[in-house]
Nucleic acid binder design. Structure first.
Lengths: 155, 155
DNA sequence: TATAAAAATTTTATACTTGAAACAATCTGA
DNA sequence: TCAGATTGTTTCAAGTATAAAATTTTTATA
């Protein structure tokens, strides 16, 4: 229980403070983005995330690819894709050569909608993070990068 | 992250990159903490948050105070408190002078458990954020602080 | 070629989350 | 006083999230 020095304990408390602030800021921005998406397009952040991943992969992605990239459970992706399919924004196609797998692709309607959303989304983020200038962006990006490296593996 | 001759568009893209990294890092740490809490005490982050708020307020808090401080909806708090009550970690007491309101308090069992959890939680956060040193902590804290000020109001 | 193991997905059970509606109690102003 | 607004909480419907079990198909291997 005895710590080696006072500064060691202070550092731990500082990390806790940073973590709590990071959590708070992230949640607030997420809440703001969620609300705007709801108002603007009657959609949600998870749906946007799925569409974004599919947009980056024009040929479509398997369900397991989606849950891997987005880091959410398989079962969760099933539900989100179900709803996107119901809205005609996404299609499930069978994978030739493997009858287990499904390839999920943006429909034309989905592509058009996402092109619209992506631009507006970038402007919203720019607005919400506007208190951070070029200098701060670089610093925060690099510090967070160190955590990203150690916490998980890839990307 | 970009050249000194940043255009407006580059800055916007940088903010998007920072946001996406922040989101990724936050989610990973949250996932890690959630998993450890599940393994260690068979509990969840939202329950920990509620207990933490109650621990800071020994006299207990009204449901509306909880949803205000934690920034989650009223209905959500109802469910989480219900489950904490079922586990005997928390108690609902009536508020003298206002028959609408309820005061939620940690039970003795809840207090003992939280004391245990809080210390371990701080060590986990210290470990997960260990790639950031004193210098980085101060910078990140101050940059995020600017956003916290503009995005929402208090605390 | 059986058959066991692995892979891709869905299903199930439970919990968290929101926004909105419903309810009850309190407060307020004519 | 007492009708209307406000406050505190719960209920409800829908969506998001996980872990674990189940299902179907493919692959490996004996």
């Amino acid at each position: 229980m005895t710590r080696q020095t006072d500064t060691q304990g202070d550092l731990s408390k500082d990390r806790l403070r940073v973590w709590l602030r990071m959590l708070k800021v992230t949640r607030r921005i997420e809440a703001e983005l969620r609300e705007r998406m709801r108002q603007e397009w009657d959609t949600t952040l998870p749906r946007f995330d799925v569409m974004s991943a599919l947009h980056r992969n024009g040929e479509g992605m398997k369900m397991s690819d989606l849950s891997g990239v987005l880091r959410v459970s398989n079962g969760n992706v099933t539900g989100i894709v179900d709803r996107l399919v119901a809205d005609g924004l996404v299609e499930r196609r069978s994978v030739e050569g493997d009858r287990r797998a499904m390839r999920v692709v943006l429909t034309e309607k989905g592509r058009v909608l996402f092109d619209d959303m992506a631009g507006v989304h970038e402007r919203w983020v720019d607005e919400l993070l506007s208190p951070i200038g070029a200098q701060g962006l670089a610093t925060v990006y690099s510090r967070l990068g160190r955590i990203a490296e150690t916490t998980g593996e890839d990307s």
